[in-house]
Design a protein around this nucleic acid. Structure first.
Length: 226
DNA sequence: GGATGATCATAT
DNA sequence: ATATGATCATCC
């Protein structure tokens, strides 16, 4: 089985997206010669990594959009039996130091969310993982209003982090974005800024998109208003 | 049932 | 330790 090359242009990516729409995860797994786990408990990123391979995304852990030549970020979106996103969407790690001069315009969050390819995937646990189907992919870009709202959230978070308030940020903050732990476990530490400006050891955090936000993305798409 | 905080696998 | 891919587990 050969590797699937990155799509050369967005048209080629759109073709691939159309081909996989309606297929099961089992069918996709066969096409790239990997096996389907019994469940996701020990392989939480399996669906995302499968779709990456199938669409020819550059596998890896680089802090940049998946299709770097197209400026497009790939995200699978778990969809429950009611047709709504069942989980939040991880965006990227939260910078906890070197926040000086960091703002929305030069942020990784903006770079990744500039253009997103959402691939809906059934997440209902009553459907065996292998039999869950992929939906029609959605190419999405924020409108001006949405981008301003994202920027507001982002800038407020960065301000608090700069002020040494990282440890008092909870998932309640933010309208579209939120900050939550992002680590193998609660004992992992990274360097951050403390309340007196000193370096501290703290839990790594990630930016996530709230389910209510991704829900609106797909409902807008379905109603054709985009 | 939904949201928050915790966690799992893998690569570098 | 840091980044990617996320979902799990528990509490309300």
């Amino acid at each position: 089985m050969h590797e699937i090359n990155p799509p050369q242009d967005i048209e080629q990516l759109k073709q691939r997206v159309q081909i996989i729409a309606g297929m099961t995860l089992s069918e996709l797994a066969v096409s790239v010669n990997i096996s389907v786990p019994d469940d996701l408990r020990r392989e939480k990123g399996w669906v995302g990594q499968l779709v990456e391979k199938v669409l020819g995304a550059t596998a890896g852990n680089k802090a940049e959009p998946d299709f770097i030549n197209l400026g497009i970020e790939l995200k699978t979106l778990p969809i429950d039996k009611k047709g709504r996103p069942s989980e939040s969407t991880y965006v990227c790690v939260v910078p906890l130091k070197h926040t000086k001069g960091l703002h929305w315009e030069n942020s990784l969050v903006k770079a990744k969310l500039n253009h997103v390819l959402w691939i809906p995937v059934e997440s209902d646990k009553q459907i065996h993982l292998a039999n869950r189907k992929v939906g029609m992919g959605i190419f999405w870009q924020a409108n001006n209003e949405t981008e301003l709202a994202l920027a507001d959230d982002f800038n407020e978070f960065i301000e608090r982090i700069s002020l040494g308030e990282v440890e008092s940020i909870t998932a309640d903050q933010g309208n579209l974005l939120q900050i939550r732990p992002k680590a193998a476990n609660a004992s992992v530490v990274t360097q951050g800024i403390g309340d007196e400006g000193q370096f501290i050891k703290t839990l790594p955090r990630g930016f996530y998109l709230r389910p209510a936000f991704t829900k609106k993305i797909i409902s807008d798409w379905r109603s054709g208003t985009q």
